[in-house]
């Protein structure tokens, strides 16, 4: 890692995770994320993006290795409600599946859930809810039941629930998946704005077109390695066709070329099979 001058928020050393001790999801991840950084985790389906975010959020303890958040070791956070609450006061998580995130009877109740758990005064809670709803432009949906919303509305409501706590760090798990182009553009702009507000934002995605707007640093996860295989700024990574093909983020025969005329690599030598 080139930058050593940053105050770290998350520090992972040799972190591995496997589900039920059998299905490996992450293997030996070393990673530091600094305050104020906008990081994009880029990787194909199943490379461990969601798992990584859940580890950052203290929801899973690493099977091996060590994770620190804000200088605190997270290995026992599952048994320590006070530490868990301390962490989640500073870190907001938007799950990949908005239906999981929205578990209250109405959007308003859902956005209020976080602030209420923090034990804030009622007026403060009301103010925060209002502010979060406004930021995500979902004030009109406050009284609706989450299941009545469209995909894009759900996503914005879900982000509002995380924002209501006014966290320093936001973890966004594939926030623009399954959205139409305009909704996607609106959301990308909102995410960029959150970054400008000084929040650290970690976004996972496999959609290359959103990366330039929201990434200061891009970390590419290997399709099979289950750990970072490259990192750099958005331009460097997006120009590296070989890397993107290797990470299964573009397909040799199936990708658009925005910037330049392309020549196919018709050799399949570097081709990977999936299983």
């Amino acid at each position: 890692m080139t930058r050593r001058d940053c105050p770290p928020i998350f520090r992972l050393e040799g972190v591995s995770y496997s589900y039920l001790g059998r299905y490996p999801a992450l293997q030996d991840v070393n990673l530091t994320i600094c305050q104020g950084e906008k990081v994009v985790i880029l990787g194909a389906n199943g490379c461990g993006k969601s798992t990584l975010l859940k580890i950052l959020d203290g929801l899973y303890p690493p099977s091996a290795g060590r994770i620190e958040a804000f200088g605190e070791d997270l290995s026992r956070v599952g048994d320590d409600p006070a530490q868990s609450q301390r962490l989640h006061r500073r870190v907001g998580f938007v799950f990949q599946d908005a239906d999981i995130q929205l578990f209250s009877p109405t959007v308003w109740d859902d956005v209020a859930f976080g602030p209420l758990q923090m034990g804030w005064e009622q007026d403060e809670v009301r103010r925060r809810v209002q502010e979060a709803l406004r930021l995500m432009d979902v004030e009109d949906l406050a009284d609706r039941a989450p299941y009545e919303l469209s995909g894009g509305e759900k996503k914005r409501a879900a982000i509002a629930t995380a924002l209501a706590i006014d966290p320093e760090v936001l973890l966004l798990d594939e926030p623009t998946a399954n959205l139409d182009p305009r909704t996607k553009a609106v959301l990308v702009e909102l995410i960029a704005r959150l970054g400008e507000m000084g929040k650290s934002v970690v976004t996972t995605t496999q959609e290359l077109e959103i990366v330039p707007s929201i990434a200061g640093r891009v970390i590419v996860f290997g399709d099979k390695e289950r750990r970072p295989i490259a990192e750099g700024d958005a331009d460097t990574i997006l120009d590296d066709t070989d890397l993107l093909v290797r990470a299964n983020l573009i397909h040799q025969h199936l990708h658009l070329h925005g910037r330049r005329a392309h020549s196919h690599q018709h050799s399949h030598a570097g081709d990977h099979d999936h299983h």
Binding site: A82, S84, V91, F93, F103, D109, G114, Q117, Q122
Partner: peptide, 14 residues
Amino acid sequence: AMLSRGFAGEIRTF
């Protein structure tokens, strides 16, 4: 999802 929003074993509602 509840944990990640600061739930610490006791539900607080409005």
